[in-house]
Design a binder for these strands. Structure first.
Lengths: 155, 155
DNA sequence: CTATCTGGGTTTGACATTCGAACTCTGCTC
DNA sequence: GAGCAGAGTTCGAATGTCAAACCCAGATAG
């Protein structure tokens, strides 16, 4: 898959409806959905906060959030802020949280190819403090997601 | 990032224009672009083959391929098939090939959450033959992309 | 009890994009 | 030089996106 001198292939070896990647792509079809997931992984959860951070039109945000809930990536969770009335936050389900490696892989790629190597986050092993990254790994060496800690590098 | 009991956050700690993930998302803005990249990672490279595999309208495919070339993810490569006239294949650049981990992470997610654990590909270490996966890994344990081999599981 | 405010949407209508079908262009073969 | 095939381009209809205007419910002020 990473060989530059690939043989000529005329047809993907796995059709769309049997490919986990293609099926995944159907649940995150557009840019806004990706950006909302990025926000949610950081812990942002409120309608107005999504709007402020990513500049999405309200009408589109409303639809995208419903899709995320319908697809089981996020769920609505009531909250009340001080004495205000009850409102709803949108938080990731386990299914949604499991997308973290995808976002991390995107981040690694963007840091390398668009930001010229300047990463905005430092990732470490929660247990040992050792630096970690997303990558190809022998199955025996893989760490669970819960071992991941991130810290924002100060500018 | 994977902690379910996240504190309330009102604003992402990294703004869009400094976030590798957000910048990456801008270069792969829609579903078709993702599906084309999946094809290319498998080694599919011709206009008509993309069309046949993913069902994209020609007009959209034409634009998407130009975008991929403009963004440096793919390049046009002349070829001739038998005695036919010279045509162009679209093959990934190194920048494009480096998206393999993202697609693999999506595939892993889709296999787990949509296909109930049934993966269509077996991934192994090219050198040792040991099973590999995409995942969180201590930096010292990460394998280069070139160590990845995949085999399609027969149905 | 009425008026107002505010977060979280829904509606609206102009504008942009996507779709699929039809068309074009180019270089080969017959 | 007529026909053909792959790789696009062009065209209107359908769909989606945008920003602004509007709505709604419940808390609080008067």
């Amino acid at each position: 898959m990473s060989n530059p001198d690939r043989p000529l292939i005329r047809k993907a070896p796995v059709p769309l409806n049997e490919c986990g990647a293609a099926l995944a792509i159907n649940q995150i079809p557009d840019r806004w959905t990706w950006l909302i997931l990025r926000e949610m992984l950081y812990g942002v959860s409120r309608f107005a906060d999504f709007q402020a951070d990513i500049g999405i039109p309200k009408s589109v945000l409303s639809v995208r959030l419903s899709e995320l809930v319908n697809n089981g990536l996020a769920k609505k969770k009531p909250y009340r802020d001080g004495s205000a009335r009850t409102r709803h936050a949108y938080v990731l389900t386990q299914k949604g949280r499991d997308l973290a490696p995808v976002i991390l892989a995107l981040m690694k790629w963007g840091d390398k190819h668009i930001k010229d190597g300047a990463s905005a986050l430092a990732l470490t092993d929660t247990q040992s403090g050792a630096p970690v990254e997303i990558g190809i790994v022998q199955t025996k060496d893989a760490l669970p997601l819960s071992r991941l800690t991130y810290r924002v590098k100060d500018h």
